[in-house]
């Protein structure tokens, strides 16, 4: 369980995250939605100890992320940020294999190699496995990063915009994979998503943020209504049921 208690993060005078309290139960997929600058990414950064909070606490299964040793947390919680510029030239396989670093240090076991191969195969990176990251397209690189984070095989997986740069097919594949991690392996997936329809089709719970606060949270059915979405985005959004899914229409 992830427990966020009264977390505040300020940049200068503005509180980007303003006294957020939130509990995320183990298992399932939670999507955090909201407009630009709502504090989604900052909240995710604080929860994953990448950014220290100015106030409040975050615990993951009782471990305070601010004080628990980093290597211990790294075996329980994995995170991928949105803007990932990497200046080191690694091959895809080397990068994905580093996902096993928290578990086996530098020495990979046979089981580690199996996980690496499985992740590479799933994200269709087999042909690219020996290429360096700087020779890949943005979407290919994004898939390699996510493959690395999934290879970490942690109970909690936090992703900021995992669909960044991905085409439609790879976006759907990515979401299915995250869904399967929750359903088949009992993992807890928390992600920041821009596309409300991906959030609607693949998550159990949606958390809506606005101006640094959580303004609504609920099941996907509760959240995918015109009233809630209008309040979150300040935009008229029609919600239609198509093939049993609630789809928001906001393009025109």
């Amino acid at each position: 369980m992830i427990e966020i208690k009264d977390v505040t993060k300020r940049y200068g005078d503005t509180a980007v995250v303003d006294g957020v309290s939130l509990t995320i139960a183990p298992g399932g997929v939670t999507s955090i939605i909201g407009a630009n600058g709502a504090g989604k990414s900052t909240l995710l950064s604080v929860v994953s100890r990448l950014t220290p909070a100015d106030g409040g606490t975050v615990t993951v299964d009782g471990m305070d992320v601010a004080t628990t040793p980093g290597d211990r947390l790294a075996r329980r919680l994995a995170v991928l940020r949105q803007d990932n510029h990497m200046s080191v030239r690694l091959t895809v396989r080397e990068l994905v294999a580093f996902g096993r670093f928290p578990h086996s240090g530098g020495r990979l076991t046979a089981a580690d190699h199996e996980l690496v191969d499985e992740a590479i195969d799933y994200f269709e990176l087999g042909d690219l496995a020996d290429r360096h990251l700087d020779q890949l397209s943005g979407g290919q690189r994004q898939r390699a990063y996510v493959a690395m984070v999934l290879c970490q095989d942690t109970d909690y997986v936090l992703l900021d915009e995992p669909l960044n740069n991905l085409d439609m097919r790879h976006s759907v594949q990515m979401m299915r994979r995250l869904r399967r991690m929750a359903d088949d392996y009992g993992k807890t997936v928390v992600m920041v998503v821009h596309d409300i329809n991906f959030a609607s089709c693949h998550s159990d719970t949606i958390v809506a943020m606005k101006r640094g606060s959580v303004i609504a949270r609920g099941t996907t059915a509760e959240m995918m209504t015109p009233e809630v979405l209008n309040a979150v985005y300040d935009l008229d959004i029609d919600v239609h049921e198509i093939g049993g899914r609630r789809i928001g229409v906001y393009f025109s």
Binding site: L50, A74, A78, M86, S87, G99
Partner: peptide, 16 residues
């Protein structure tokens, strides 16, 4: 090598 990946990746992988 992990440090070379940048701070976020390093922290994620549990490296100080």
């Amino acid at each position: 090598t992990v440090a070379g990946m940048g701070r976020s990746f390093a922290v994620n992988l549990g490296v100080r």
